[in-house]
């Protein structure tokens, strides 16, 4: 189960603005899904190591050689606001 405080905390961590109605629906839906997911919390996993990668690669390293990148124009072309070649962001509080 997941409560309103947790929903609000998680939404803030994820930077998602939810209105009250959305928050309510989210709480119910997440609780429903977690009920199913809780199955794995009951499993006996003693001594089982975690799997992060299914492939057994190691040491995939790149040579330290510069490659051509983007022009300033391409770098900025999809941006919402540009000031003198830089991306603009709103003020921080």
């Amino acid at each position: 189960m997941i409560d309103d405080t947790t929903v609000r905390h998680v939404a803030r961590l994820a930077r998602l603005r939810l209105d009250d109605a959305e928050e309510q629906v989210m709480r119910e839906e997440l609780s429903g899904i977690l009920e199913h997911i809780d199955a794995i919390r009951a499993m006996d996993l003693d001594g089982v190591p975690p799997t992060t990668h299914v492939i057994e690669l190691e040491n995939v390293l790149r040579a330290d050689e510069p490659r051509p990148g983007l022009s300033q124009e391409d770098a900025l072309r999809e941006a919402r606001a540009v000031v003198d070649g830089s991306f603009e962001v709103p003020r921080m509080d």
Partner: peptide
């Protein structure tokens, strides 16, 4: 590099980013 107060559109309070 984030420079505070460099913005234009959002007023002097805005910031700009150079990657």
């Amino acid at each position: 590099k984030l420079t505070h107060g460099g913005g234009r559109r959002a007023g002097a309070d805005g910031s700009v980013v150079d990657f």
